[in-house]
Amino acid sequence: MKVKRILAVVKMETIRIFAEPLTLVFTLLLVPVFILIFGLTMGSNYGWHEDYTIFEIMVPGLLAYGCLLTILDVASSVAGGRELGLQRRINTTPLTSTEYISSQIISYTIKPLLQLLLGLGMALIVGYRPANTAVGYLLVIVFLVILTFCCVGLGLITATFAKSAGGASGLAFIFIVPQQIFATFIPPEFMGAGTFKWIFPSFYATDGLGLIFAGTPLTDSRIWIRLGILFAISIVIYVIGIFVYEKNKNK
């Protein structure tokens, strides 16, 4: 594995992310704008539980949701590259699949981290006061990075079934929407669908972030169990992602 090759792809992918300002603004501002709207309109009470404010569910959920958009980015990037013949050309270079996918993970982690910064910043402005420590914030980053890692895998799987970048964008919502509904900023209990949440990786991130923001001691096993499960699911999805990418990269 050559770092120079990984950095070349990271640079290229980062330029791609910033090359489309409208998409960038839309994806980056989605989380803070949602937080602003929900925060201002619903105030400090979500309405179903007197102990929780809207922020306890919304902020972790929206941060996880921001990571889910990586599925769309990766799927459309890979399928688009294949559509243009770029993938085939890259395949004739010495770049390995592991190098390629590692660079995708690094590139696509940038956006969720910016979303974390903007989203949390907005939440603080509209009144959210998480009971968090500096180490807690580091753990928040770890959760988001692992969820992004998982989403890169899901994006690669999505790209397998898509023939074009447009098709991939549509297909990506198969993975995004259920997680968005059952395991991010909409409490599943709200819809009587709490049982489903356990099967979605984003639930473990959302719930883990919720615990950290609520001031749960970082030694609490619930945080680490969620991190462990998220990591295990991500590894499985990542391996499947590499497998299908390898199988389809010359299509």
Partner: peptide, 21 residues
Amino acid sequence: PAVIKFLSGLGNIKFFGKLYL
């Protein structure tokens, strides 16, 4: 013409050159 449209001509050449180390 399999090139990266959002990079400059030179940017494309540099990218592939780096892949060849």
